[in-house]
């Protein structure tokens, strides 16, 4: 479905090199890596905002470079880390923006647009506040509305760039659970960039580790989320064992002992 073939991106120096992976419908891929590893650049390439210096990205066999912007917008749903709305806009108006690529110049929304927006809002459980203003919603509600906007064009691929960074744990779980369910039920492929290692292990079917613009590993969470990989990737002392309930990898931070006057003096 999605094929990324040996892409490279240069910006003064190489930001990304040798990135290759494939993704099938129904799969959720988590992209993990430290700050500055090139995750956001990779996302921008995947949604066609940046063109790779080398290599190609194929979506259902079509090169992203050759797809017109509006067609690409229909095939891709994008959710950014945070959406700032400074103008009064209702949640429904916001979700209908997801139908932009389907409309014409001044075109008013058709019944089809309204139906799709409603459906997307029902899937994300946001239809109840369709008439509320977006800037008055809580962070979690706003991210779900943004997800609904991404779903309104019935995309084939969902790209979520740190969608849970500003959410509390309950909303984080809710959003990732929803993403996984949508991927499964709607036959979407989803890519999620996140710093939440344990949530990635729970909800992703595959994980890609990105280190200084290069692919460290790509595979199922069990295969790639090993202690050796994660300690090297984040340059931190981490303990990886198994979640006793889900059996997914579980990452625990091993903090160095706190320096006190006593242990500094060797007592």
């Amino acid at each position: 479905m999605l094929e990324v073939k040996d892409i490279r991106f240069d910006y003064q120096a190489a930001v990304l090199k040798g990135i290759s992976f494939t993704l099938q419908r129904g799969e959720v891929l988590a992209v993990l890596g430290p700050n500055g590893a090139g995750k956001s650049t990779l996302m921008k390439i995947l949604i066609g905002l940046l063109a790779p210096s080398r290599g190609e990205v194929l979506l259902d066999g079509k090169n992203l470079k050759t797809l017109p912007r509006k067609l690409l917008a229909r095939w891709l749903g994008y959710v950014a880390q945070e959406t700032i709305v400074r103008f009064p806009l209702t949640a429904m108006e916001f979700v209908l923006q997801g139908r932009f690529a389907q409309g014409r110049l001044l075109g008013f929304e058709t019944d089809d647009d309204l139906h799709e927006a409603k459906r997307a809002m029902e899937m994300t459980e946001t239809y109840a506040f369709a008439c509320r203003l977006v800037h008055e919603l809580s962070g979690g509600e706003r991210q779900r509305v943004t997800l609904a906007r991404a779903l309104a064009s019935r995309p084939r691929l969902l790209v979520l760039d740190e969608p849970i960074a500003n959410l509390d744990i309950s909303h984080q779980v809710k959003l990732l659970e929803l993403t996984r369910r949508l991927a499964h039920e709607e036959g979407l492929a989803a890519i999620v960039v996140t710093h939440e290692l344990n949530l990635a292990a729970e909800f992703a079917s595959r994980v890609l580790l990105l280190q200084a613009g290069e692919m460290l590993a790509c595979g199922t969470p069990d295969e790639v989320m090993t202690e050796a990989h994660l300690c090297a990737l984040f340059e931190a002392k981490l303990l990886v064992d198994q979640n006793p309930v889900s059996h997914a990898p579980r990452v625990t931070v091993v903090a160095p002992p706190q320096m006190t006057l006593e242990n500094r003096n060797g007592k």
């Binding site: 905002l49 917008a73 994008y78 950014a80 690529a101």
Partner: peptide
């Protein structure tokens, strides 16, 4: 925003 606008077509 420019980025979401571009992503939406």
């Amino acid at each position: 925003g420019e980025e979401p606008a571009r992503a939406l077509g």
